[in-house]
Computed example of a mutant assay.
Amino acid sequence: MTEIELYEQALRWLGRREYGEMELRNRLRTLPEVSLELVNKVVERLLAMDYLSDVRFAEALVRDRTRRGQGSLRIRHELQQKGVPALIIESSLAELAPNDTAQENAHRALVKRFGPTPPEDLKARKKRHDFLTRRGFDGQTIRMVLEALG
C-alpha cells in the first residue's frame, strides 16, 4: 500500500468519526502491506494538518458516552485504553461532565432501566447500585441518586 492510499484510507475513517492518535495508528497497522514507518508518516501529516486530534476525540467520546448514561470512571478508563494522555482526559471530563450532570445521568439511566419506583428491599437496592457501578458512576454519585429515590 502506498502512502497516498494509506492517507486516503485514514481520511475516510476520520470522515466518519473522530479517532485518537493511538487508535488510528493501531487501525492503520492492521492493513496489509503497511510498514510502521509509513503509518508514522501518515499520522504525522494528519496531526500537522489538524485532521487528527486527541482533544477533539476525547471531547466527542465524553459527550457520546455521557449521553448514553455512562459515568466518568468508565469513560476515563475507555480513554486510557485508547491511549489518550491523562491531561486531555481530565480536561475533557471536567469541561463536559460536571458532578451535577453525573447525578442527572445516573438518575436517568436508573429510571430508564428500572422505572421511577424506589427499590422495595435491600436486594433491589443492591441491584441498582451494581448497575450504576457497571455504568462507571462513582460511589458518592450512586449514594446520592439512590437516596433521592427513597
Rank of each mutant, 00 (worst) to 15 (best):
Q81C: 07
V42T: 06
A48H: 07
S72C: 03
G83F: 10
V55I: 13
L61T: 11
R63I: 08
Q81H: 07
L46P: 03
E44K: 12
Y51L: 13
D50E: 13
G71L: 06
G71H: 07
E59M: 09
Q70F: 15
D54A: 11
R45I: 02
R76G: 01
R65M: 15
P85Q: 07
D64W: 02
A58V: 06
Q81F: 04
D64N: 06
I88F: 03
S72F: 09
S72M: 03
Y51E: 08
D50A: 05
A58F: 09
R74G: 08
L52S: 05
Y51Q: 11
E59Q: 14
G71P: 03
Q81G: 08
R45Q: 12
L52W: 07
L87K: 13
R76N: 06
R65H: 12
D50I: 01
L73D: 12
A60D: 11
R65G: 00
R56S: 13
R74P: 00
E59P: 00
G83E: 02
Q70Y: 15
V43N: 06
S53T: 06
V84R: 01
D54E: 10
E44S: 14
L52M: 09
H77D: 11
R76V: 01
V62N: 05
R67G: 10
L87F: 09
K82P: 00
V42Q: 03
